[in-house]
Measured scan of single mutants.
Amino acid sequence: QTVVIGDTTYHLNNPEAAQQIAKELAKKYGLKVVISGNTIKLK
Rank of each mutant, 00 (worst) to 15 (best):
K27A: 13
T9P: 06
S36H: 11
A22V: 08
Q19F: 14
E24K: 12
L42N: 02
H11V: 11
K27Y: 08
I35H: 02
P15W: 15
P15D: 05
K43F: 15
I35A: 02
T39S: 06
H11M: 08
T2M: 11
K28L: 10
V3A: 03
G37N: 05
A18P: 02
A17V: 12
A17R: 11
G37A: 03
L42H: 02
V4I: 12
N38S: 08
G30Q: 05
K41L: 15
L25Y: 04
K28F: 07
I21V: 09
G6N: 07
N13W: 11
N38H: 05
K28M: 07
Q20V: 07
I5S: 03
P15L: 12
P15C: 14
V4Y: 07
V34D: 06
I35L: 06
A26L: 13
K32H: 13
K28H: 05
Y29L: 07
Y29K: 03
G30D: 04
G30P: 05
K27I: 10
Q1M: 15
T2R: 08
L42P: 00
N14P: 08
K43L: 15
I35P: 00
Q1E: 06
L42F: 10
K23V: 09
P15F: 14
L31M: 11
T9N: 04
I21E: 01
S36C: 15
K23E: 14
N38T: 09
G30E: 04
L12R: 01
A17L: 14
A17K: 10
I40V: 06
T8S: 07
G6S: 05
Q19P: 03
N38C: 03
V34I: 12
N13P: 14
N13F: 08
N14V: 08
Q1T: 15
E16G: 08
I40R: 00
I5A: 01
T2F: 13
Q20D: 06
Q20W: 14
I21T: 02
Y29G: 03
H11Q: 07
L31Y: 11
G6M: 08
G30V: 03
G30L: 05
I35D: 01
I21F: 15
V4R: 07
K27R: 10
A17I: 12
V4W: 07
I40Q: 00
V33G: 00
Y10I: 14
E16Y: 10
N13L: 14
Q1P: 11
A22C: 02
Q20E: 11
S36E: 14
K23D: 12
V33A: 02
Q20I: 09
K41V: 15
L42Q: 01
K27T: 10
E24F: 15
V34E: 12
K28E: 04
L25W: 07
T2N: 08
S36W: 08
N13M: 11
A18L: 11
G6Y: 08
Y29R: 04
Q19E: 10
S36K: 10
S36I: 13
T9Y: 09
K41R: 12
K41A: 09
Y10T: 02
A18R: 03
